[in-house]
């Protein structure tokens, strides 16, 4: 179990992580989701005691990382697969790490076997492909057979086979009762890997919820309606208290009406009652990417076509149904937007 309390990290005037609190439960894969530059890696480094938080604490099973005795047997981490001396063999790399926490040498061969690197154990790690490096990183994390595992963007740059392998590996680790905390900037990947989500943007918590709830709430569905008598159609729908949006002629097809939070059954029956002709009646579901951008939109640090975020001001809480989102702290303002 990992518990973060008011975790904050400032670099000069930049706030990388801002008053972040969350918990990660054992026995499940918890995704740590956020756009690039949202503060995921910084948070992970603070969990592991590599970076000192400016404020707040983070505890693993009730203890700070620096208080752990032989920490590799409690916490395993893969933050960057390239944290290896390129001229050292995979086996030597694991051997020195194992020795540091009194892990027997035979465990080195076990983890090499577990990640399928036995045949290249004596080769220099600098010659490894990204997939092999990633496997070596996972072997490193597993060395001490820890109950808590952290992975930072483990599938970045991997081929589909590698992605599938890592995904299944994480499910297996969680099924064994371990705490698995894995970061990603891809909601679609997390939808398949994680049962729980901690979502951050610009260093602030956006949501902590189950993946299922997050996706249901995030990807709004709407009904697309089109007919020859658009104005009458519009009137009929609004008279029933439905929100109707006009969609102009475009790539998605000819001009139509979009009715959020409605079902095709409901609209079909409504229109049938007044005897209107329809040319189209379909459900539109937003993609996970769209949903993610919508939720983290204000919280993306580097955004194309929007230089900086001038003015700033309070960030509106994300629109979501069902109240699954924790409200942002009352004093939350856009970093960089206050008093510049």
């Amino acid at each position: 179990m990992i518990e973060a309390q008011g975790l904050t990290k400032r670099y000069g005037r930049t706030v990388a992580v801002n008053d972040l609190s969350f918990t990660v439960q054992p026995g499940r894969v918890t995704g740590f989701l956020g756009p690039n530059g949202a503060g995921k890696s910084t948070t992970m480094r603070m969990i592991l005691g590599l970076d000192n938080p400016t404020a707040g604490t983070v505890r693993i099973n009730g203890k700070r990382y620096s208080e752990l005795h032989q920490p590799l047997s409690k916490v395993g981490a893969l933050l960057d697969a390239k944290w290896v001396h390129p001229n050292r063999s995979a086996r030597s790399h694991l051997r020195w790490i194992a020795a540091s926490n009194r892990i027997p040498v035979k465990r080195v061969d076990e983890v090499l076997e577990a990640v399928g690197l036995t045949s290249v154990a004596g080769k220099r790690a600098g010659g490894f492909s990204l997939g092999m490096s990633q496997r070596l990183g996972i072997a490193t994390a597993l060395l001490g057979d820890p109950g808590v595992l952290l992975f930072d963007e483990p599938v970045n740059g991997l081929d589909p086979e590698g992605i599938l392998w890592i995904r299944q590996f994480m499910h297996r680790l969680a099924a064994e009762g371990r705490t698995v905390f894995v970061s990603s900037h891809l909601l679609s990947e997390m939808a398949l890997t994680a049962q729980d989500l901690v979502v951050i943007g610009r260093g602030r918590l956006i949501a902590q919820t189950s993946t299922r709830e997050f996706i249901d709430a995030a990807s709004e569905s709407a009904v697309r309606v089109r007919g020859p008598e658009m104005e009458r159609l519009h009137g009929v729908l609004t008279s029933q208290g439905l929100t109707v949006r006009d969609v102009p002629d475009g790539d998605d097809g000819p001009a139509a009406l979009l009715v959020p939070n409605a079902s095709t059954d409901q609209i079909g029956e409504l229109v049938g009652k007044v005897g209107l002709v329809l040319h189209e009646l379909s459900t539109k579901r937003g993609s996970l990417e769209q949903a993610f951008i919508q939720l983290t939109g204000q919280d993306v640090e580097y955004q194309a076509g929007r230089p900086g975020v001038p003015g700033g001001g309070p960030v509106a809480p994300p629109q979501a149904a069902g109240g699954v989102f924790t409200p942002p702290p009352a004093n939350a303002t856009t970093p960089g937007g206050n008093g510049r």
């Binding site: 590599l50 981490a77 933050l79 290896v84 540091s100």
Partner: peptide, 11 residues
């Protein structure tokens, strides 16, 4: 090569 981080993770 950031192995110092692995060192500090271990100790």
């Amino acid at each position: 090569f950031s192995t110092i981080r692995s060192t500090f993770l271990a100790v």
